[in-house]
Lab assay of single mutants.
Amino acid sequence: MSIQHFRVALIPFFAAFCLPVFAHPETLVKVKDAEDQLGARVGYIELDLNSGKILESFRPEERFPMMSTFKVLLCGAVLSRVDAGQEQLGRRIHYSQNDLVEYSPVTEKHLTDGMTVRELCSAAITMSDNTAANLLLTTIGGPKELTAFLHNMGDHVTRLDRWEPELNEAIPNDERDTTMPAAMATTLRKLLTGELLTLASRQQLIDWMEADKVAGPLLRSALPAGWFIADKSGAGERGSRGIIAALGPDGKPSRIVVIYTTGSQATMDERNRQIAEIGASLIKHW
């Protein structure tokens, strides 16, 4: 067993022997301040990774656009098919120029040779490549099948209805392509620590998230040296922004954090800054 596999296998073990965790309302004060600064709703939840206990939450059962955070769930569904012998990570998928959609920095470079399922998941999570996500959605049967996968996990809230990039439209009061912070946090925890996926697939999923290259201005910008984070960000229309993450000190994750916002007129930089400040408060009061 590799060191990384050992780390993920012992996530519940280490967490069980940690000192009790206590909620700190100071972080919620910052979440509410972010709402004021952005002029928009902000949803927040913080779960203990081992027990699933909610440590703090704000608007945990209000719907927010998922945006690209759905790509972690998508690759979880792909990995479940791999575990069941219905898919192979090494299978190569070929596609054409007509398949390319807006923001496809990886797939646009491989029109000639195609990409493997493993490479597509890596591109979808680490670079948020939209064509990679659409190609992977095709392998599982489309958005409705991802929703069905989530329902089978016990998540009857999260739903995907459309493809990239239309799913980022974020129309107010439109339930399409949305989740709730509580539902997303619980589902992410199941994917990373539950028995739904094999140990190898859980490790692969967290490795992809740990290698995320496009979430630097968010929670990662607030992390002290030595902290662990595996995350996936999302951005959408109407001032929408979000991030889902597993993080913790001492090089291992111990909490799940989900943050979503929508309806702001603020710039992307300002949305990023507010999420980073929430992260800084979380870490300060850990």
Rank of each mutant, 00 (worst) to 15 (best):
T178I: 04
R41V: 09
Q86G: 11
T139V: 12
R91P: 01
Y95M: 07
L28S: 08
E61I: 10
E166V: 12
P253W: 07
S68V: 00
E61D: 14
S122C: 08
E210D: 09
V8A: 11
D161Y: 04
A16K: 06
T262L: 07
R92T: 11
C75M: 06
V157N: 14
V106F: 07
T187G: 08
L218M: 10
P25Y: 09
F14M: 11
L247F: 05
K144A: 15
E56T: 12
Q88H: 15
M268V: 09
T69M: 03
K213S: 11
E119Q: 15
A245G: 09
P165W: 05
G279E: 02
D36H: 10
R81G: 06
L160I: 13
A124P: 00
G216Y: 08
G114L: 04
E108W: 08
S80D: 10
R81P: 00
R63P: 07
R162N: 11
D231C: 04
F14Y: 09
V31H: 01
L19D: 10
M66R: 00
R241F: 02
C75F: 06
A77M: 11
D36A: 15
H156P: 11
G90P: 08
D129H: 00
G251W: 07
P224M: 04
Q37W: 13
R271F: 04
A183V: 13
K30Y: 05
A132K: 00
L47N: 03
T179Q: 00
I256G: 02
H151K: 15
A148P: 07
N152F: 11
P143S: 06
R238I: 08
A215K: 05
N50D: 15
G90S: 13
G242D: 01
K144R: 14
E102C: 07
A34L: 08
D161F: 03
E46S: 15
E35Y: 02
T147R: 11
F13L: 13
S221Y: 10
F64C: 02
T27F: 04
H5S: 05
T187L: 08
N272F: 02
I244C: 09
A225D: 14
D129L: 00
E210S: 10
N152L: 11
N98K: 14
R159W: 06
P105L: 06
G85L: 08
T193P: 01
G236P: 00
L100K: 05
T267D: 14
T186C: 15
L137I: 09
I283M: 11
E46R: 04
I206E: 09
I3R: 08
D36P: 05
P181H: 01
V29Q: 15
A222S: 14
M66G: 06
L146D: 00
E108Q: 10
G279C: 09
I54Y: 09
Q274P: 05
T186D: 14
F70V: 10
A200F: 09
G114A: 05
P12M: 14
R189T: 10
T198M: 10
A245H: 00
S104H: 06
L47Q: 07
V258F: 02
L247Y: 03
K53Q: 12
I229D: 01
M209T: 02
M153T: 12
E46H: 08
N130H: 00
N98D: 11
